[in-house]
Design a protein around this nucleic acid. Structure first.
Lengths: 225, 225
DNA sequence: GTATGGTAAAAAATCGATTATTTTGTCTAA
DNA sequence: TTAGACAAAATAATCGATTTTTTACCATAC
């Protein structure tokens, strides 16, 4: 019997995990305003789920740091602050730099292929497509691939968390084409340096890359307040 | 009217947050066997809560990394592995070292007082009292205090997470009095070096401290398997 | 005017029961 | 004996309703 049919609208997984993924994307993408208190009943409607799976997702997001939970008074979207942005950027510098050096040491030829693929897909991405969501997806994937073979699951976990937090700032405003091009170029330079196994140069470039992204994020934050 | 009476058994907070705290302690303290599948109904009994708050707590713990959640098949206690222990210890070296240097730079006299207090309470702790739980509490608190003024909330968050993970290994077996004494001494030496603002020496000592703790944890893990 | 207290409405948290999925056990056919 | 099919049991996930707590509003006293 053929059980492999797509079953139409069964995206696999529980209602809770689906709403978690969706909410996470929306929080990182700035679909909620920082500091806002979440109206659970409205979210039920918005995501078409019941209360239980929704609350489970909210609890997970709170533990993950994309929400803050106050006992007996629900969930809110964390406030943004200059201090926190600085903190996040600095931690990205430290942790991603560390991870990149390790990745260049350990990464094999499969990694090289993945990296080339991820960079290529990112370049090809249609930035106009639904609010740049496809580009965002591929951009995240590229940075994930870059550090993937660092050998530490905890380091990767922290980096992913920081990325989500950083993007809350970076994605506050619309795309900035000029600086955008510069950052895109750096992605390819990063791949080259990685393939050449030049850990030192790669780390310096990544530092610069994060620094430039930080400037973008900071500007958007300041315009946004 | 006097509303400030203790209200006997009202430890404040929601059922969910209470069971979260309790479960976290039990998971870190090794009250569950690694790899074990959690029987939710049994937990309901054990912690005297309903299904909803219990599941919310489990979801938070999964996001925090003290449980693994598999869609449609509940929660289990994460397995232990040599590789992961190595990873955790290495990350502790990196992150706590970084945090300690920053703390020594930024910490003020209030911090000095807190640190002395935490070290003193740790020394005074009755290690025989209920399975050393009081000592564990104070030990955690000491290490938290040590790095507290590092200036990065994310760094502190990651360090706390790593501590919980590390303790799953360290607390596998019973106390080892010989090495225990050596580690206790180091706590006081750390305070001294911190007060002297000798960041370099302090970091080296902390490295050694974590290294020794790692040896303990590794031995316990190997005996435990 | 400000503060205090009381009530109604809203929202959060929790419960009890239902539904969906996985696991277990048994039987049958090769 | 073993693989597969099926049913029954166990467990996970979700729903709908209830309970608890907070918030908003208004009246009264100082």
């Amino acid at each position: 019997m053929n059980n492999s049919l797509p079953k139409s609208a069964t995206p696999a997984g529980t209602a809770s995990s689906r709403v978690f993924d969706h909410l996470r994307k929306d929080l990182v993408g700035g679909r909620f305003v920082a500091g806002e208190k979440l109206a659970i009943n409205a979210l039920k409607e918005r995501y078409q789920v019941g209360l239980s799976p929704l609350r489970e997702a909210l609890n997970k997001l709170a533990a993950y740091g994309l929400l803050v939970q106050e006992n007996q008074r629900g969930f809110r979207v964390p406030k943004l602050s200059r201090d926190e942005l600085d903190d996040i950027a600095r931690m990205r510098l430290e942790l991603e730099g560390m991870a990149l050096e390790r990745a260049i040491t350990h990464g094999n030829s499969l990694w090289e292929a993945d990296l080339l693929g991820a960079a290529h897909r990112l370049k090809r991405a249609d930035i106009t497509l639904d609010k740049g969501e496809e580009w965002e997806q591929l951009h995240t994937q590229f940075h994930r691939t870059l550090v993937a073979p660092c050998g530490s699951v905890w380091l990767l976990r922290f980096i992913e968390q920081l990325h989500d937090q950083f993007d809350r700032y970076r994605r506050l405003g619309p795309k900035m084409p000029t600086i955008r091009q510069e950052l895109d170029d750096q992605h390819h330079q990063l791949v080259e340096l990685a393939l050449q196994r030049d850990a030192k140069a790669a780390r310096e470039l990544l530092d610069d890359h994060i620094h430039k992204s930080y400037e973008v994020a900071l500007k958007r934050y300041q315009e946004h307040v």
